[in-house]
């Protein structure tokens, strides 16, 4: 479904990604783990077209997307929940969700999807007229995920959804992620520092170090891989 082929991404003269290749098949949950500054966020931003790769290619459903503008990439069915949630602070919860559906015209289905989201996160329903910036961290993360779902993506990119949240909220969010994957058949590309958690929900995983993919394997093998256990699971 998604094929990242030998991409190299730069910020000015600084190279953030070196020869990165990743494959995602339809229906999977895959995870990209690694330390701070390894290039995980850059990988997602390259896929979304915000920081396009200088070299290499990215294909989505067979189409090259590495030269496309971000809005066209979204319209193909790739949505991202970026690091730090990035809620529009002065738009209400409802307006934030509405922005998620920016490229859709099917008003009836948008309404239905909103109802679905309010069932998924009843807290958001209570706060629907409140500005997004006034929500707590956990609520904002729920809103960020919901906003991405409103686009009805085929591929959902999630950047550190557990960052800065209480353990109970993290569990809730991960439950929702697996639920979205199961019920809507949405493929999920999960970037996490919390490797333990990520590998438990994922089918396959990639390990990234200094802008390179160093290991790629099934999630189960990664959980028992000595190097991974030492470096990322703290065991």
């Amino acid at each position: 479904m998604l094929e990242v082929k030998n991409i190299e991404t730069f910020y000015g003269n600084i190279q953030a990604l070196k020869d990165v290749s990743i494959q995602v098949s339809e229906g999977e949950i895959i995870t990209l783990i690694g330390a701070n500054g390894a290039g995980k966020t850059t990988t997602l931003m390259s896929i979304s077209g915000i920081v396009p790769p200088r070299f290499g290619e990215i294909y989505f459903m067979g189409k090259p997307i590495h030269k496309m503008s971000p809005n066209n990439i979204v319209s193909l069915g790739i949505s991202q929940v970026p690091e730090g949630r990035r809620i529009f602070p002065y738009l209400t919860v409802l307006e934030n969700l509405d922005m998620g559906a920016f490229l859709r015209n099917d008003t009836e289905n948008i309404k239905r999807d909103m109802e679905y989201i309010f069932e998924l996160f009843p807290l958001l329903a209570q706060r629907r007229r409140q500005p997004g910036g006034t929500l707590s961290g956990g609520e904002q993360q729920m809103l960020a995920i919901s906003r991405a779902i409103m686009a009805r993506p085929r591929l959902l990119l999630l950047d550190e959804p557990s960052l800065g949240l209480a353990p109970i909220i993290i569990r809730q969010i991960f439950d929702i992620i697996t639920k979205i994957n199961r019920e809507n058949k949405t493929t999920i590309f999960l970037v996490e520092q919390n490797a333990n958690l990520a590998l438990k929900v994922a089918n396959r995983g990639y390990v990234m170090e200094n802008g390179r993919i160093t290991i790629s394997d099934s999630a189960q093998s990664l959980l028992s891989n000595d190097k991974v256990r030492k470096a990322y699971l703290g065991l």
């Binding site: 503008s69 970026p82 990035r86 002065y90 738009l91 906003r147």
Partner: peptide, 24 residues
């Protein structure tokens, strides 16, 4: 309007506006 909402979203967070599919 749709363009008005896109303007407000872009003013608040340009990259995020791109990520929801707004042609900035």
């Amino acid at each position: 309007t749709r363009i008005g909402k896109a303007m407000r979203a872009t003013a608040q967070d340009r990259d995020m506006a791109m990520l929801v599919g707004i042609d900035v």
